[in-house]
Nucleic acid binder design. Structure first.
Lengths: 159, 159
DNA sequence: GGTGAAACTTCTAATAA
DNA sequence: TTATTAGAAGTTTCACC
């Protein structure tokens, strides 16, 4: 996949939209001393190129009653069962992320649950999937860093 | 933290905005058979309550040249060094998420890098932090699940 | 609570530079 | 590529249910 060339203006636009996707284009234009039309054209171009894949809300899951986060490493009996197990994991909505990995585990996933009891149920469900030989759970005591903005700044300055 | 009470209309609004934060309120209103003013008031209420913390763009990091994802488990020499190590990790922008965890590791983080060589540099930097005794890396071969929408649907139906 | 309409702001596409 | 512009579209407020 080719690395995309974005200039400084594109970076600044992305930077403002990452912070708040509803930032009016007129505000962005004012700050960057360009016209709103230009902002519009640039954003459209980045959308067409697939750089901007979409936008999403950041919700407070704790306030919604989901304060439990854990990472679960999965050992499979045989590697060729990966696809099947992933399909099963995909049916558990509390599993928000899953990766096929090298190293210790075959599959590695993140779960978000209401509490310990709820998490236990989810993990048992994972353990029960055919092909899973065992799992190893790491409970998050605190999410200390979660910031893609810093990465974006770095990516921009890299180019 | 109290669980917040949202009704069916709030859920539907969130559901549409999670999919695309720029969905016009007029569209939402039309679909839900309410007025755009009501959508506006409801969204504002959820923002004020902190349920909606913000909005962000979903970018294609692969197209931006960052196709490497790994999870790194960190073993500390002493637990009381946690805060110090996290501060250091926070200075490495390629570390996008970090959790203090129970279980095998003391700290667990996610890195996003350009390639293997770049990842090596980052991991070496982590290894070099005072208080880190050793690390264990799991390289993502494939991000198979990444979907908070499913979780939201479930949360809604839970209530 | 919600509505509907007015006033205001923003978007978007066409044209021109 | 960018700017300007003007009509379309969206947001926000408010008097009134």
């Amino acid at each position: 996949m080719a690395k995309f060339k974005l200039d400084e203006v594109d970076h600044q636009i992305l930077d403002m939209l990452i912070e708040n996707t509803r930032t009016p284009f007129t505000d962005i234009a004012k700050k960057l001393l360009i016209s709103a039309g230009t902002v519009h054209v640039r954003v459209k171009k980045m959308e067409d190129a697939g750089i901007i894949k979409g936008s999403s809300l950041t919700l407070d899951y704790v306030k919604l009653g989901y304060s439990f986060i854990a990472y679960v490493g999965i050992f499979l009996e045989k590697t060729h069962q990966t696809k099947f197990v992933l399909e099963r994991l995909n049916q558990i909505p509390y599993i928000t992320v899953a990766h096929i990995t090298t190293g210790k585990f075959n599959i590695f996933c993140k779960i978000r649950a209401k509490d310990t009891k709820h998490a236990k149920e989810i993990i048992f469900k994972v353990d029960d999937i055919d092909g899973v030989s065992r799992t190893e759970t790491m409970i998050s005591l605190e999410e200390s860093i979660n910031d893609k903005r810093r990465l974006m700044h770095t990516i921009f300055n890299d180019l």
